[in-house]
């Protein structure tokens, strides 16, 4: 479903992503894990078309991606951002935020779709005409997920979707993502610094360090501690230590 071949990303003179390649099958959830500065979010944002200055090959559902993305791409691929406080327009109500993708893609029946989208992410009807500042962090992230899904995409890019949330809210959002992924047969890429979160949602994952993929593992290998690369082993050891 998603193919990335020798992706290189430059920010000015900085070469931040080196020769990254991976494939994600349809319906699969692929994890990108690493510390800050490892380039994991950059890879995701480049796939989403939010970064210029890349070379290499990328394709989604067999369609090669160019520097500029057309509307059909954005109908197929959607993204959920890390900070639910920053990813919702502060002067727009939930209703307005959710109707924007519908208007852009000319999707009819907005009323019914918005109602259904709110139900799907378990937001109360009363939340529909609220502003983001009137919602809790978890509710905002639900709005962001509803916005990403309202135009029926098949690929969902998740950039640290729970790292700004409390653990109890994180559990709810992770459950919600797992349910939606199953119900809608979504292909996902999940970026996180948290190995436990990655292991919970992903079938396969790539470990990144310094802009390169150092190792690709399955969830089973990760849990069994069958990692080879020292950086991966360090991350696993730390994660176990913090679990206590």
């Amino acid at each position: 479903m998603i193919e990335v071949e020798n992706l290189n990303v430059h920010f000015g003179a900085n070469h931040v992503v080196h020769d990254v390649s991976f494939r994600v099958a349809a319906g699969e959830t692929f994890g990108l894990v690493g510390e800050s500065g490892s380039g994991k979010s950059t890879v995701l944002r480049t796939i989403a078309g939010l970064n210029a200055g890349w070379d290499g090959g990328m394709a989604v559902a067999g369609t090669p991606l160019g520097q500029k993305r057309d509307r059909a791409f954005f109908k197929r691929v959607q993204m959920v951002f890390q900070d639910p406080y920053g990813s919702l327009h502060p002067r727009q109500t939930v209703d307005r935020i959710l109707s924007e993708p519908l208007e852009v893609h000319g999707i009819p029946d907005a009323e019914a779709r918005i109602t259904r989208a709110l139900e799907e992410v378990a937001l109360p009807r009363t939340a529909r005409f609220r502003y983001p500042h009137q919602l809790s962090g978890g509710q905002r992230q639900r709005v962001a997920i509803a916005r990403a899904l309202i135009a029926d995409p098949s690929v969902l890019l998740l950039d640290e979707p729970t790292s700004a949330l409390d653990v109890s809210v994180q559990a709810e959002v992770l459950n919600l993502l797992a349910d939606l992924r199953q119900a809608r047969q979504l292909t996902c890429i999940l970026v996180s610094h948290n190995l436990a979160v990655i292991a919970h949602l992903c079938e396969r994952l790539a470990v990144m360090q310094g802009g390169r993929i150092v190792e690709v593992l399955t969830e089973g290998q990760l849990r069994a501690g069958e990692a080879v690369h020292p950086h991966t082993r360090d991350l696993i050891a730390l994660s176990h230590a913090l679990e206590g």
Binding site: V167, S168, Q170, A171, L174, A178, A199, S239, E243
Partner: peptide
């Protein structure tokens, strides 16, 4: 207890996380 339980774990596999 709820706070401790609802965290995903690297060592134990759970299909759903208990919510608080």
């Amino acid at each position: 207890r709820g706070l401790l339980d609802c965290m995903p774990s690297l060592s134990v596999r759970r299909d759903r996380l208990p919510t608080l």
